[in-house]
């Protein structure tokens, strides 16, 4: 009796299933249509505004082209040769790397310290402090650059006034007067502008740390410094790499800040590659734009920075997998 009923039940179920799948496949085909329709705008924009600009940025580099109409005068590798021979390019290249290097080694550790303070249960008003640290991030970079011209002014600027009043310096510093000091100023502003976002990244990392490990360490008699060195730091390594990656990419592409703050000067001391390229493409005073040459410079720079970002990206993937 029992077995009979189960068999018929099974049959019923399998019939039901069959009907369902048949119905589903009909539905599915209809779904396909909707899926492609929903994706259509993204696919069109992907091909035109993502894929084509990438391909075009390579293609145009082989032409002598002033940006009007379609390029016709093919010059082969000439643009690349000219870029590689141009000492101003290498100057901008060097500056970009100096800027990026200092930004990374200053911001990454100090933002961790601030995040540790903000994460401490002993701190009152953590949300308030976090908001203040974050505020510069949301401000318009180009306007920040202009305001900073005044902050770093020789006479009456904030930087000089505060250093003078604290007796750190005896005479005002001409921050934007010489190449090295101007680079220092650009680094200071770059640190300030991007700092808050790295604090948030670190805070996100700190929140993933398991509390029970710290309890266990406390019971074993580990002090705060030992806990930090042996537990916090190893667990945060994936975040360290991701944050370094973001900060590096961000710094390599700095444009708004140097354009409005120093415009690359004085004496090309803060000229960075994105600014160098921009000049050839859109700001040829008295001459025709050199879009092909600018494209070639863009590729040389893209390749050089890719090597570094690829290494960091590989590290991200490697440590991302062994995440706690």
């Amino acid at each position: 009796m029992i077995s009979k009923s189960t068999i018929s039940e099974q049959k019923l179920v399998s019939n039901e299933l069959e009907r369902k799948t048949r119905k589903k496949s009909g539905l599915k085909r209809k779904h396909y249509m909707w899926c492609y329709l929903f994706l259509a705008p993204q696919i069109i924009l992907y091909l035109t505004f993502t894929l084509w600009p990438i391909i075009g940025s390579y293609y145009f580099a082989f032409f002598n082209w002033n940006g009007i109409g379609w390029p016709t005068e093919i010059v082969g590798w000439e643009n690349f040769v000219e870029v590689l021979k141009d000492s101003y390019f290498w100057n901008a290249f060097k500056n970009s790397f100096v800027y990026t290097f200092f930004l990374v080694i200053i911001v990454v550790p100090t933002s961790l310290i601030v995040a540790l303070i903000l994460n401490s249960p002993k701190l009152y008003g953590a949300a308030f402090f976090r908001t203040l640290f974050f505020l510069p991030v949301v401000l318009t970079m180009s306007i920040v650059g202009i305001i900073m011209q005044n902050m770093f002014a020789f006479e009456g600027g904030f930087m000089n006034e505060i250093l003078l009043s604290m007796n750190i310096i005896d005479d005002p510093i001409n921050w934007l007067g010489g190449p090295n000091l101007a680079m220092t100023s650009v680094v200071i502003v770059g640190v300030w502008k991007g700092f808050g976002i790295k604090v948030i990244y670190w805070l996100a990392g700190l929140q993933t740390l398991p509390k029970d490990i710290y309890e266990a360490a406390k019971i074993d008699g580990a002090n705060l410094i030992q806990q930090f060195v042996y537990i916090t730091v190893p667990l945060l390594i994936p975040f360290l790499i991701v944050i370094t990656f973001f900060q590096t990419v961000w710094a390599f592409n700095v444009f708004d800040l140097v354009k409005t703050f120093t415009n690359g000067g004085p004496l090309f001391g803060t000229d960075m590659v994105p600014l160098y390229i921009y000049r050839y493409a859109f700001e040829m005073d008295g001459g025709l734009p050199r879009m092909g040459f600018a494209s070639a410079a863009g590729i040389v720079y893209g390749m050089a920075t890719m090597v570094i970002t690829l290494i960091l990206g590989a590290l991200v993937r490697k440590y991302g997998k062994n995440r706690y």
Binding site: L51, P53, S57
Partner: peptide, 24 residues
């Protein structure tokens, strides 16, 4: 294919893409 194409854009080294964009 679509998923891969979207994610690949993060890893393809691009040159100065504003010029083709401007031209387009």
């Amino acid at each position: 294919l679509i998923m891969g194409a979207i994610i690949a854009t993060m890893f393809i080294p691009a040159g100065y893409t504003i010029i083709p964009l401007w031209q387009l």
